[in-house]
Structures are given as structure tokens and as C-alpha cells.
């Protein structure tokens, strides 16, 4: 039911502003994706320098969110977007906020990575890496769906959130078990628990993005479609 127009706007500058907004969202998405991957790498490889880079880049991500918000406000005030344009603009606002949150979470993971370096490496880190890979895939897929205006991958991401939750739960269970057996593991274990929690939150934001993409493309909310479907 997708019917995004192939025509250009009659007012060229309006079309350019919309394209600009989409470009910036895409760039912000790419940047945030890198942040998540780098933060995960910092945890897995125990590399403090990567963690540092992640923290530095976080400033750029925040600035981008502010810029996107400005652009959206400008579009509403001056162009009064309608129909798809309205959905694109409003979605941009939601995406910017979700991406900024993901950026924050990636930064926190990077902090934890620096702290974890002061402890001996743990077996459970592999499970974190696995969870991180799933979340990163979710993020990549949903960003691809956004740039392709394609709802299918978005719906897949939305449904796959259960997988993220399962992995998260098993990491938590295993970690708690380890910590109850060895009290020296309590300190690093807490950090690991936080990293896992943050990855799970990133997964949640990915589903938010999936919903936003679905709305932008179809005009309907994903919940209503899922509710209608068996």
C-alpha cells in the first residue's frame, strides 16, 4: 500500500529541505551504528582507546539530534507538511530522539568497558558479544529499512525483539549464577549486567525505530497492523 510519490515538489526548496532532513537522519543512523559497534568492540577486546573515541563521538551525535529538531520545527512552521511529508517530518523527530538515546546507551557501554579492563577477562563476555551482535544486526536492518522506505525488514526487526529479550534474560541468569558462586565476580559482574541491560534497551529503541519507519511508509501504526494480523 506504499505510495510515496515519485514526483518532485513544485516548490524545489521544500523538496530539498525534506531530502536534507532524510540525509541527516541517515548520517546520524550511520554514526550511531558505529558507536554501538565500537562500544561493543571496546567491551569484547578490552580496548580502552576505542572506548575513548566513542565518548568523543557522542558529542557529535547530540549535536545532530539538536540540528534535526531544528530542521523539523522549521519545516512545520514554514512548510506545513501534509500527508507523506507530514509523516516523514514527524518520524524524523522520533528517529532523532531514539537514535540519540541509542548513542547515549553506547556511550555508557563504553564507560563500562573502561571499568571492566581493571578486572580479569570473564568467560561471559562471549555471551555479551553474542547479544551485542544480535542488537547490532537489528539496528542495521532497521536503518536499512528506513533508507529503503521498506516496511518488511522493519516488521522483521520488530518481531525479532523477542530474540534480543531471550538472550538478555539468559545472560542475566548466567551472570547472577556466577556471581552467587564467586563473590569476587560481583564487581565486574555488575558492570556486565549494565552492559547487557543497555544492549537490551538499544534493542527496544530499534523496535521503536521500526514502528516509526512503518508509520512513515504506510501511515498506519505497526501495533494496529499486528493486532489485525493473526
Amino acid at each position: 500500500m506504499t505510495q510515496v510519490s515519485t514526483h518532485d515538489h513544485i516548490v524545489t526548496s521544500y523538496g530539498e529541505e525534506l531530502d536534507d532532513l532524510a540525509d541527516e537522519i541517515a548520517r546520524m543512523g550511520g554514526l550511531v551504528e558505529t558507536q554501538v559497534i565500537d562500544a561493543l568492540t571496546a567491551v569484547v577486546r578490552r580496548d580502552a582507546s576505542i572506548a575513548k573515541t566513542v565518548r568523543k563521538r557522542e558529542i557529535t551525535v547530540n549535536a545532530m539530534q539538536v540540528d534535526i529538531e531544528k530542521k523539523v520545527i522549521r519545516l512545520f512552521a514554514l512548510r506545513q507538511p501534509m500527508a507523506t511529508d507530514l509523516r516523514v517530518t514527524i518520524t524524523a523527530l522520533r528517529l532523532a530522539s531514539d537514535l540519540e538515546r541509542i548513542g547515549d546507551l553506547a556511550k555508557t557501554i563504553a564507560y563500562r568497558a573502561a571499568d571492566l579492563n581493571s578486572y580479569p577477562p570473564l568467560e561471559v563476555t562471549q555471551r555479551i558479544e553474542r547479544l551485542g551482535n544480535i542488537v547490532t544486526r537489528q539496528l542495521r536492518e532497521v536503518l536499512d529499512a528506513l533508507s529503503a522506505d521498506n516496511v518488511e525488514p522493519a516488521i522483521r526487526v520488530w518481531r525479532n525483539d523477542d530474540e534480543v529479550d531471550e538472550h538478555y534474560n539468559s545472560v542475566i541468569k548466567e551472570m547472577l549464577l556466577l556471581m552467587s558462586g564467586d563473590s569476587s565476580l560481583v564487581d565486574p559482574g555488575a558492570h556486565i549486567l549494565f552492559v547487557a541491560k543497555n544492549l537490551e534497551r538499544i534493542g527496544d529503541h530499534c523496535t521503536n525505530i521500526a514502528e516509526a519507519v512503518h508509520y512513515q511508509v504506510t501511515g498506519d501504526t505497526l501495533e494496529s497492523v499486528e493486532a489485525a494480523a493473526p
Binding site: M1, Q3, S5, T6, H7, D8, H9, I10, V11, Y14, P81, M82, A83, T84, D85, L86, R87, T218, G219, D220
Partner: peptide
């Protein structure tokens, strides 16, 4: 009609994209 028009022509018209 103004958030989610069903027809391409409506969409084009209200978003100012008449080709």
C-alpha cells in the same frame, strides 16, 4: 486525507507535488 491519503493523486496534490 491529510495524513494518509489512499490515492497517489490525492497525495501528490496535498503535498504539492503535482507532476
Amino acid at each position: 486525507i491529510f495524513t494518509n491519503p489512499r490515492e497517489r493523486r490525492t497525495q501528490d496534490y496535498i503535498t504539492g507535488r503535482f507532476g
